[in-house]
């Protein structure tokens, strides 16, 4: 085992870690914003909207994330030369970077998987509670905000923690489109030092720490939410 490369590459790992955290938090945040309506419309209807949502979940969950990522980055990228003036437009600085595409791909993935989970979550809230809320005179949105959504989320909290850990572990795919996250930095170390095991072990250790943090945060959140007796 040779670890002498660690100090040299540590700054790179710090910036890689920052990229990984940004990827994870942005895609989880936007993904959940999408997942809630996607789950909800499948329970409440209208039916056609529910069908679209279900179709979206099926497609996203049925295709490899790597392919989605590449379709977005290289696939859309191949269309750019056909759009006249796109390189002069204000959008180009964003379209030119790989990072927004990675966030978009992971957001869609989170929306697809968590949309399905949220569907089950909304469904599992006992009807009686919703009826009681309505009997109190709550409007539809108040009911959703104060009763339905919190109860639904509460039910799937442990599941979501697991899902976000899985999302974390998908983020290394971003390295395939030139986003140098923790894993990407690890590959640089491997290629430049010809050491195989040490960088991989180092990267694995970082992911275990991140996973541990996610699990701890969710445990803490779970304890804060009062459980029905």
């Amino acid at each position: 085992m040779v670890w002498s490369w660690v100090p040299e590459y540590l700054p790179k790992f710090v910036s890689g870690l920052w990229i990984t955290l940004q990827l994870l938090s942005l895609s989880v945040f936007f993904g959940m914003l999408l997942a809630i309506p996607i789950g909800l419309v499948q329970v409440t209807g209208p039916r056609w909207l529910g069908a679209i949502a279900r179709g979206f979940c099926t497609v996203v969950r049925g295709t490899p994330l790597l392919i989605q990522l590449w379709l977005l980055y290289y696939g859309l990228g191949a269309l750019f030369p056909m759009v006249p003036g796109i390189r002069e437009s204000f959008l180009w600085p964003v379209l030119r970077e790989a990072f927004p595409f990675a966030v978009l791909a992971f957001t869609i993935s989170v929306a697809g998987y968590e949309g399905e989970i949220m569907r089950g979550a909304f469904k599992s809230v006992p009807k009686g509670e919703l009826e009681a809320a309505r009997a109190f005179g709550m409007g539809r949105f108040t009911l959703l905000r104060r009763i339905w959504l919190p109860r639904a989320l509460q039910n799937v909290f442990p599941t979501l923690a697991g899902e976000f850990v899985l999302t974390l572990k998908s983020t290394p795919l971003a390295a395939t489109i030139t986003v140098f996250d923790v894993y990407g930095v690890g590959s640089i170390v491997r290629q430049e030092t010809y050491r195989i095991y040490e960088p991989l072990l180092f990267v694995a250790a970082i992911y275990i720490c991140l996973t541990g943090i996610i699990v701890l945060v969710f445990n803490w959140l779970e304890r804060r939410v009062p459980r029905p007796a």
């Binding site: 290289y74 990228g77 191949a78 796109i86 030139t178």
Partner: peptide
């Protein structure tokens, strides 16, 4: 200087203008 895993990938991004 952007690094790619594969020769064809940087060509694709050259065509895409990235």
């Amino acid at each position: 200087v952007k690094t790619y895993q594969d020769f064809n990938e940087h060509n694709q991004d050259l065509v895409a203008g990235r």
